[in-house]
Design a protein around this nucleic acid. Structure first.
Length: 370
RNA sequence: GCACCAUUGGUGAAGUGGUUAACACGGCAGAUUGUGGUUCUGUUAUGCGUCGGUUCGAUCCCGACAUGGUGUC
């Protein structure tokens, strides 16, 4: 399915864009919270909407195992099943999960053999199977099944991996049965190697997917390497298609990614950090469980318009977190998601005003000062 | 009054005549990037009720005292 991506403006490498799904028009750069098991942990669809989140990511591997794609299909698809009716859903292919569960010897050209994290049973996932499951889940955007190599690996290893991911992309594409309603993305790999990122980007683009993901980033490399990986990939991707940087969501990384031509981000960070008591603020990340907030009756961020910041103090939220009350995790999740949706709103405005580089300077100086 | 038992960190407690007093919880801090829904890592008693004694050396043995518990007149 064509997402009708429109590149509205390009400024200092950053792109202001728009794409369309049956849920409406969506502005990029955009951030997606992660709802692995058909829920963004602790949050209702209403709360997501209130936090200005217009799209979520869910996961093929987890839903395939439980409750199973057939049940979700019978429910009428993911949107119906989880009653998320305000925006698009993107499903990850499951590769990332499967590779973390597989032994090297169990990775073959055919697919990946691995053990279920639920009951230890032996399972096999192939590029075709991943697409079939995603077809049944019914997300608006689905991912090709890619190989997710560890970091670091040799150039030779990575080259073979990139070539295999290309073959897998072709195989998945050939069984994609819902191309009228589901957009399919190809994934660029290649690690930190410029020639392999280029090869991967060019060859994947030749397959003419509805959008392109940049994978294998933020896997343990240093910041400089991370940003190069992104540049090497986006340099060779078509300008008229959307680009999605998989799994990256640190606020600074989002800004740096945008400047390197990324349109779409997803990350578990806002919700995972929230569950562990950490909140994003313009002045850096804070740990709300810290004793210094015991009697701090101010809000997390008085510039924030989220439900938590409009109604509750840090002292109260700290109490909830310390007492293991789920409402505390929910409030911080709402805040962290709103922080990132506001960040991309500000980024879009900065691109529109041709001041994204100044924005980066100001944002990073304040976020990292401490 | 007498007899017996007990006394270890914020809590529950283990332990030994000899360098750093186990473990758990709690506390304090850190981590987290295509999800670990309560995770991971680090740290947290210069001291074993008090005062003496024995000993090269005592939280551990002995005595007195303090506090608590049980039994008994």
């Amino acid at each position: 399915m064509d997402l009708k991506f429109k590149l509205i403006k390009e400024s200092s490498g950053a792109r202001l864009g728009e794409f369309e799904t049956k849920w409406g028009k969506h502005k990029t750069p955009m951030f997606m919270p992660v709802g692995t098991q058909a829920t963004v942990k602790t949050l209702s669809p209403e709360e997501l909407k209130d936090a200005h989140s217009d799209i979520i990511l869910s996961n093929t591997y987890h839903l395939w195992l439980r409750p199973g794609e057939d049940i979700i299909d019978k429910a009428g698809g993911l949107h119906e099943f989880m009653n998320y009716k305000t925006g698009p859903i993107l499903t990850d292919c499951g590769g990332f999960q499967v590779f973390s569960l597989a032994k090297p010897k169990d990775i073959s050209e055919e697919g990946v053999k691995f053990k279920s994290h639920l009951d230890g049973s032996s399972l096999f996932l192939t590029p075709e199977k991943s697409i079939e499951v995603q077809n049944k889940l019914g997300a608006d955007i689905i991912m090709s099944f890619d190989e997710c190599p560890p970091y670091p690996v040799t150039h030779e290893y990575m080259e073979n991996s990139v070539l295999r991911t290309l073959r897998w992309a072709q195989r998945g594409r050939s069984v994609h049965s819902k191309s009228d309603t589901q957009a399919l993305f190809g994934i660029v790999q290649g690690g930190e190697f410029e020639d392999l990122r280029r090869l991967s980007a060019i060859k994947t683009s030749e397959m003419d997917f509805d959008g392109y993901s940049v994978g294998g980033v933020s896997v343990g490399e240093d910041a400089e390497t991370k940003y190069k990986m992104i540049e090497y990939a986006t340099a060779h991707l078509p300008k008229d298609k959307i680009r999605y940087l998989m799994g990256v969501g640190d606020p600074v990384d989002i800004v740096e990614g945008v400047i390197r031509g990324i349109d779409l981000f997803d990350c578990v960070l806002p919700t995972r950090l929230a569950r562990h008591g950490n909140a994003f603020t313009r002045d850096g990340k804070i740990n709300l469980r810290n004793a210094k907030f015991k009697e701090d009756f101010s809000v997390i961020d008085n510039e924030c318009d989220c439900y938590a910041c409009k109604n509750f103090t840090k002292a109260y939220i700290r109490h909830l977190l310390t007492a293991d009350e789920s409402f505390g995790q929910r409030l911080v999740s709402i805040h962290n998601i709103r922080f990132l949706t506001k960040l991309v709103e500000d980024i879009r405005e900065a691109i529109d005003n041709d001041r994204i580089l100044e924005f980066r300077e100001e944002f990073i100086n304040r976020y990292k000062k401490k």
